[in-house]
Design a protein around this nucleic acid. Structure first.
Length: 478
RNA sequence: GGCGGUGUAGCCAAGCGGUAAGGCAGGGGCCUGCAAAGCCUCCACCCCCAGUUCAAAUCUGGGCGCCGCCUCCA
């Protein structure tokens, strides 16, 4: 099993520190707003990593934080004229709901930064004691130049950074910092903002220190995998490394993995740019697993350009998979039994190669392509081409392979997809009446009337299927 | 400007030196009163130029385009 390590820039054989056990930490969201489809892609990717490792037999500790204090949260609370805690709580609940839509397994632990303030303060004190950090007028800064390997993750050199930093420096911060590159570990309290007491004075933690402190608190000094969005490589993850490795003297994580972004019209989608579509919004129009499928159709290190066309295509593909899944359940093919090992081997080989989900999905579609026509033959009254035992084995293999991709199971849907269309459906008795009316018309060779009835029902989402034996069956369009 | 990534059909995408997987969309045919479903079938000068090689989408060199990071951001 190989994964791409951002630290070395190449694929490496994966070997956890303890055999059979993997610790993964993923940087979570700052909870001042709802999640957009970019967040969805990111967490689908890391959930798939987690599921795949579990599928391969590892025990996985998956920890993902919430940043629950920050300038934007304070700003949002002021706008909405309510406590920052309320903004945080609402958005965390929305986060859980949105992730459930995408069939993302709950993390082992969701630590919140504000629950770890004591640990954060201790961490900062220890860095000060070791000479890596210094207090300045109520703030505490990390002295970047003290950490020799600063820049090793992002490939940046201190000399290159100086230019950028000096151009954008905020004058009042510069006055306190010994060096423009230094970053805040503790921010001195400002009037009217939430603050916590500390030996450095009243204030709140900087963003980067949260993750370092919470990883140490909940997972240990070195973990197997640290993951997050590629935008976090610099400065966030670089700073985490500087903090944790300066204090502990050994690697924070052996493997660093980063997901590429979702673009909208060729441009980065982000809260800052304001060009985002929320997961919630998508789920009212499409089955949310179509979004999961779309995310997995691209490799996690490749940008996805999100368009209506690509989502619509994914929705059609998802419908095929969904129909095949349903087919097996109605046929009672059973979840246990033999698999077609050739498919399992090819799937495993693809996924072992840096989580190559597009190739994994190609194998999924090979199975779907065999099963779907059989399902359709059955629905439309034709005879099956394959025997049931073979179909059952193919179906079981499909279900088995869909599991690590998170495309099967029972997602806790907060919204019923397509609910708007199902509420006012035509009654089956009415359909039956129209079918017999149409049969009479057909017998009289009144095809105009027959076609009109077909059209009418089609408008109601009902598809009529004529069989050779003069009978007509029907099913919902979706 | 520095660092990183990427460029394969209308769209997504595989490919890791041996003559272009798979999916979506689309075209044609058989079947059908019309449909649906099924079956058959069609659909790529691999960003450009120059090398290496018997052989290159794949390797080397040089261009060009797009994206990201360098500032809060998955």
């Amino acid at each position: 099993m190989q994964f791409h390590n951002s630290l070395t820039g190449r694929k490496e054989v994966f070997s956890p520190r303890e055999p059979g056990r993997v610790q993964i930490y993923v940087c979570g969201v700052t909870v001042y707003d709802r999640c957009h489809i970019g967040h969805g892609r990111a967490y689908v990717v890391w959930d798939t990593l987690r599921r795949y490792l579990e599928w391969r037999g590892f025990g996985v500790q998956y920890v993902q934080n919430f940043t629950d204090i920050d300038d934007k949260i304070i700003q949002r609370a002021n706008q909405e004229a309510r406590p920052w805690q309320a903004v945080v709580e609402d958005n965390i609940q929305s986060y859980y709901a949105d992730m459930a839509l995408l069939n993302i397994k709950p993390a082992t632990l969701y630590p919140r930064a504000m629950e770890s303030v004591p640990e954060i303060k201790d961490f900062i004190s220890a860095l000060v004691d070791k000479g890596y950090a210094y207090a300045a007028a109520g703030d505490v800064y990390y002295a970047v130049r003290k950490f020799d390997s600063y820049g090793k993750l992002s490939g940046k050199k201190i000399a290159d950074l100086e230019v950028g930093a000096s151009e954008r420096i905020v004058q009042e911060d510069l006055a306190r910092k010994r060096d423009p590159l230094d970053f805040a570990l503790w921010k001195g309290a400002k009037p009217g903002e939430p603050a916590w007491d500390s030996t450095f004075g009243s204030g709140r933690p900087g963003w980067h220190i949260e993750c370092s402190a919470m990883i140490a608190q909940h997972m240990g000094e070195t973990i197997d995998i640290h993951a997050g969005g590629e935008d976090l490589v610099f400065p966030h993850h670089e700073n985490e490394i500087a903090q944790s490795e300066a204090l502990h003297g050994h690697p924070l994580a052996n493997l660093w993995m980063h997901n590429a972004f979702v673009q909208l019209n060729g441009e980065k989608m982000s809260k800052s740019l304001g060009n985002f579509i929320t997961i919630h919004e998508i789920a009212t129009k499409y089955h949310p697993l179509a979004l999961r499928l779309l995310s997995l159709q691209s490799h996690y290190r490749t940008a996805i350009n999100f368009t209506d066309e690509s989502l619509a295509a994914a929705a059609r593909s998802w419908k095929d998979i969904e129909q095949v899944i349903q087919f097996g359940y109605t046929q009672n093919f059973g979840a246990s039994g033999e698999y077609v090992t050739a498919y399992v081997e090819r799937f495993t080989e693809a996924m072992d190669n840096d989580l190559a989900t597009p190739q994994g999905l190609a194998i999924i579609f090979e199975l779907v392509k065999q099963l779907l026509p059989e399902r359709n033959r059955l629905v439309h009254g034709g005879a099956l081409m394959l025997d049931l035992a073979t179909l059952a084995m193919l179906w079981r293999t499909l279900i088995y392979l869909l599991e690590p991709l998170g495309l099967v199971g029972t997602p806790a849907f907060a919204l019923e997809p397509g609910q708007a269309f199902t509420e006012n459906r035509i009654a089956p008795q009415e359909i039956a009446a129209l079918i017999s009316e149409r049969r009479a018309a057909k017998q009289n060779k009144d095809y105009a009337t027959a076609d009109q009835i077909r059209q009418t029902l089609m408008g109601q989402g009902v598809v009529l299927v004529d069989s050779r034996d003069q009978t007509t069956s029907w099913h919902w369009q979706d």
